[in-house]
Every structure is written in structure tokens, then in C-alpha cells.
């Protein structure tokens, strides 16, 4: 396990290093030298990691993920949230996330989740929209309202 992971890790960095060095060849003058050196060093280091792992006699178990199902769910829900922040608006998407994430992970106390969502979102609103006046992605619901009215 550990052996195979380190070999792959090393190879990934060899790849990144070669790619960076190759990109750097097209940069003019001194601006290309530095990234090219970095790319080549990264390639060398990656190869070292891979070779070291290959030579290692023992292979200890090392789990990459402890609970694949939970991790997958959390990752997917996070990605959907980020994708929805702009179209739905920040507060709508975030409110949905506070409800959806625990539900997806097996939490069934809906009232508890709703209370936390409400309290937390009002705090965020107070800090970012009232106190700091930061522009956040606009709420779709509000513009729907505007068209309807």
C-alpha cells in the first residue's frame, strides 16, 4: 500500500516538474530560468521518492481514505454547493448546505439542523452584509420576486 502510493506520488511530481520545465522554455530571458530550474528539481525529487519506494523491502498498510462513502458524500455535496453559490445566491445556497450536508451524512434531527442553520446564517448576514458590507452573490429568490412584482 504505502509502497504503491509513494511510487504514484513520485511519478505525479515528475509529471508536474517536466510539464513546468517544458512550459518555462517558452518564457523570455530570466523569467524562464527560475521556473525551469524549479521544474527540473521537482522532477528529480519526484524520481527520488519513487525510487526510494521501489527499493523499500517492506510494504506497510496505509489507508488513503478511512470512510470512502462519507468522504465521497461530503466531497460531492461541497462541490454542488460551490456550483450553486452563484446561480442561487450565497444565502440560499448556504442555508440549503447546512440542511443538506448533515442529512446526507445521516443526521436525522431536522429541527436541530434548522435551528443551527437559522442562527448561523443570521450571524453571517450580520457580519458580512451589515457590518462589513461585502458584496456576495445575489439571491435568485429576490430577483424572481422583482420580476413577479
Amino acid at each position: 500500500m504505502e509502497k504503491r502510493q509513494d511510487i504514484v506520488l513520485g511519478l505525479i511530481f515528475v509529471g508536474i516538474g517536466i510539464f513546468a520545465a517544458w512550459m518555462a522554455t517558452s518564457y523570455k530571458g530570466a523569467s524562464g530560468t527560475y521556473p525551469m530550474v524549479l521544474g527540473l528539481v521537482l522532477t528529480l525529487l519526484g524520481a527520488t521518492v519513487s525510487i526510494k519506494a521501489l527499493r523499500q523491502p517492506t510494504d506497510q498498510p496505509r489507508a488513503l481514505v478511512n470512510a470512502p462513502a462519507k468522504l465521497g458524500t461530503a466531497a460531492l455535496v461541497s462541490a454542488i454547493y460551490v456550483a450553486l453559490v452563484i446561480p442561487l445566491g450565497f444565502y440560499t445556497a448556504s442555508f440549503l448546505l447546512v440542511l443538506a450536508m448533515p442529512l446526507a451524512l445521516g443526521f436525522r434531527r431536522l429541527v436541530y439542523a434548522l435551528t443551527v442553520a437559522a442562527v448561523f446564517m443570521s450571524l453571517i448576514y450580520l457580519v458580512f452584509s451589515v457590518l462589513l458590507e461585502k458584496p456576495l452573490p445575489r439571491e435568485l429568490i429576490l430577483s424572481l420576486n422583482a420580476v413577479g412584482g
Partner: peptide
Amino acid sequence: PGVLLVPTILILMCVGVYVINGRA
């Protein structure tokens, strides 16, 4: 509960990151 900390921290991260440059 840990499962409620997950979305709340995530939202804090996102709002903090978004307001730096205002882009998704």
C-alpha cells in the same frame, strides 16, 4: 455535532475566500 460543524466551517471558508476578489 460534528456533522453540523462540517457545513458551517465550509460556509465560513467559502465566504472568506469569495470576498477576497469577488469571484467564484
